[in-house]
Design a protein around this nucleic acid. Structure first.
Lengths: 219, 219
DNA sequence: TGCGAAGATGAAGGAAGCCTCATCCTCGTT
DNA sequence: AACGAGGATGAGGCTTCCTTCATCTTCGCA
């Protein structure tokens, strides 16, 4: 089990990331300050650090620098504001491995984490299969009972999420945060709409509605 | 040097593919009939076969079957019409490794060829660098002098092409067929327009106009 | 230096994708 | 059977991207 150290002071985001990573099979620990971050990172046992640059007590770069100076060379993925583009450069120069700009969709973050996690086995999963559906993550192609079909980016992301949890009910909220991001309007019915178009494209019967709960892809 | 066997009877497409592959560092041989295809494939020396399904003398599947039956297990990438979706399934079942639907852009084909070519070294090139520009093919991110910038899909494809040939003049025709596809209107000035927006985003001075010839990215 | 071809540029049309909203339908409960 | 909440659906608006077109500018040669 891979362990991720989340360095983030904003409660909402920290929780969003922690829940998501946990659900994806990682063990996640959250710390909210720079000094804690250095402590935890050095104490060890983590396979990757997610580092928010906007910490209250310290400059995020400083954390990164100190961690590196102490000889810890786990992969570090930086979380930064969309407009702080300059930061990412400094970050990468300072020794970060990748960055994700806020606001981000969870899947985006997850992709980075998986990509940079050095313990990731090389022959990673690239094709998802479930109930006659086949989804190639590398080529982004989808087949329904062997027949190719076209999905838009959002549709693909949603179907991927469903296919990563076949037979399991996912709530609208889960889908919203995974596919649309943590700051998306919770009152929206986007999910419903996209489930509809997905049903049209991959077959009505494959996605079951669980009233009051959410949707389930039948594997 | 990797060798590609192109099985295609349409002169225009065969030429388009051959030129492109040659320019990309492959050695390409074209044959126009199924029986030739089997001959050449079996005679050996090829690292990959590009197989058009619409051959005059034989069914493309038959070629594939015979080649496989004769113990040749080089990667085979099928070329098929957009609507012959059913074909791709049969193709994959019959032993093809991938497929590209017509009409295709050359870059699309190239990506498949590179992907399926088994001799491809594992630590393949994922970041192109030239003259202060850095282009990450895997994450699709671009940096200009270290500052991240956003490119659309077309812009990215065009810049990628230019960066694969730094310091070298590319004609509009070359860019058209690589980025837009072989059946694109040759009288269009799309390339000009995209060069303009690229210049805006990555810096006017990086792309030089060579009057009467085309454009060059200065490395 | 002037002319014509080649290139640069701005604007606008059109398509695709994304999302919201209003309305209609259906299920489960009373 | 009727009602209300939850879900399904269609239409429309907004945005982004792609492409074309018309016009202006620049280059190189006569």
């Amino acid at each position: 089990m891979s362990r991720v150290l989340i360095v983030e002071d904003e409660e909402r985001i920290a929780s969003f990331v922690r829940k998501g990573l946990t659900a994806s099979g990682f063990t996640a620990t959250v710390v909210g300050t720079g000094s804690e971050a250095v402590d935890y990172a050095v104490t060890g046992g983590f396979d990757l650090m997610l580092l928010d640059l906007g910490l209250p007590d310290t400059d995020g770069f400083d954390v990164l620098r100190r961690v590196r100076a102490l000889g810890v060379d786990i992969p570090v993925v930086i979380l930064t504001a969309r407009d702080g583009v300059r930061d990412t450069v400094t970050g990468l120069e300072t020794g970060a491995d990748d960055y994700v700009t806020k606001p981000f969709r969870f899947e985006e973050l997850l992709a980075r984490v998986r990509l940079r996690m050095r313990t990731e086995r090389p022959g990673a999963l690239t094709v998802l299969e479930a109930g006659g559906l086949s989804l190639d993550l590398r080529t982004r192609r989808v087949a329904v009972d062997g027949t190719a079909t076209d999905l838009t980016a959002r549709e693909f992301a949603l179907l991927e999420l469903l296919m990563r949890h076949p037979g399991q009910v996912l709530t609208r909220q889960q889908m919203l945060s995974h596919v649309w991001g943590y700051d998306h309007d919770p009152g929206s019915n986007v999910v419903d709409v996209f489930v509809r178009t997905l049903r049209r494209k991959v077959g009505q019967e494959r996605i079951t509605t669980v009233r009051g709960m959410g949707y389930r892809l039948d594997g």
